[in-house]
Design a protein around this nucleic acid. Structure first.
Lengths: 218, 218
DNA sequence: ATAATAAACGGAGACGTCTCCACTTGTCAA
DNA sequence: TTGACAAGTGGAGACGTCTCCGTTTATTAT
């Protein structure tokens, strides 16, 4: 599972690229079959029990394969969820791309807001799976999050927009840093905490982000 | 293990309060002894192997007690780390209190900066243990982080300062939200990521936080 | 077809978290 | 002192992640 970084503007189709890097050789027939079983089993279990509640073990059992086989394909649940979200990720990036070209002449802050809105919508749509993607059993949660191609891609995008927005005259705030903070603020953990514990709606949340990061009006 | 919220300004001594809520009855002798063994064992193992690498199992074995006994006292490693840091937490809050009264008349933004500096120093000093405190095996990492009394206390403090700093005339950014974001930005995950992956020094990190959140100069 | 071979498989097992509960032990009132 | 009993204990065991490695299977060259 890998999302291929592309040169220049977003190429929605190339973003999610399965099979190992640059075609080693096509997938063996039995392997392909098993992968489908895994995906089916996972989806079934996720729907019945919720993503959080389902263990890799259960998935293996449901798919009637050994744990080793499951782990060979997906190092953890996070990777599996990512694979299950391929579709939606592609759509997200297509939407972003469309929005970005449509508003090509608008101020960067406006384009940024649009991107954030699209991302929040995306998050809402498949919140459980996305939380699954961002989760990680192993130590260094943030580290694994930031290594995910989804993160890298979005980060790059944000850096571009933030750079454009930099107010000339002030000390330039490092856009890389700012993008990291922004993505952290938009993470599952943060988002669901604000919604559930602090009682914010999506709109209020976004508004607060905007105020906190002190972006330009509208 | 509980940190008692206090009324009004910081009462450094009351912040860390052991034994269960408001004295149920004093700890049994054998229990007290075991707790000491646990603390000793944990410290020993942490020093030799690093906090991350040590499991609750190992601690129990090293302390020569059953796993059940260990878990009865500390629901997880995080709580154990918190107990191990009591001293340092008290000192942190004492320092903050001192700084706050010393600069009582200075602008809130300056006081805030001081608090952040003290916090970063605190983090540096016991980084491993603090990371341990913020870690959590269970689902909902952020949730458990935010429920920790250390979080609640700091959050309260920040809200106070941020409220003072609110520029009259702008849309008031919710200080509770801002404080959440700030604490998230200062979390172990974030801090160590910026230091190790992005190559920031403590000073640069703090500077970027300042710029990102767009606080007043100095 | 068939042999060679690399990929894929499965499950045992190491190690981890955490719970449950029958048993022991400290404490305190009588 | 002693007995009642809450507090504390320990370890078996349920369940989870993840690895290792001997065996099976698909593919491809012959």
């Amino acid at each position: 599972m890998s999302i291929v970084l592309h040169n220049g503007c977003l190429g929605s189709d190339e973003i999610v690229n399965d099979t190992e890097e640059t075609q080693g050789r096509s997938e063996r027939r039995d392997a392909a079959e098993n992968r489908q079983r895994i995906l089916d089993a996972a989806l079934r279990l996720f729907e019945h029990n919720g993503v959080e509640q389902v263990s890799m073990n259960q998935i293996a059992t449901e798919a009637k394969i050994g744990p080793g086989t499951l782990y060979r394909r997906y190092r953890n649940k996070s990777e599996l969820c990512l694979d299950l979200m391929k579709e939606n990720i592609i759509i997200l990036f297509e939407n972003i791309e469309a929005h970005l070209t449509q508003n090509r002449t608008a101020p960067a802050s406006q384009r940024l807001k649009g991107v954030l809105i699209l991302f929040i919508r995306f998050r809402e749509k498949k919140s459980q799976l996305l939380t699954g993607v961002e989760e990680s059993t192993t130590t260094n949660r943030f580290r694994s999050r930031t290594q995910s191609p989804l993160y890298v891609e979005l980060h790059q995008l944000l850096v571009g927009l933030l750079d454009e927005m930099t107010v000339t005259g002030h000390t330039p705030p490092d856009s890389v840093f700012k993008a990291d903070m922004l993505l952290m603020a938009l993470s599952s953990d943060s988002y669901s905490f604000q919604k559930e514990e602090r009682g914010y709606s999506s709109e209020k949340f976004l508004e607060q982000i905007w105020l906190t990061f002190n972006f330009q009006d509208v």
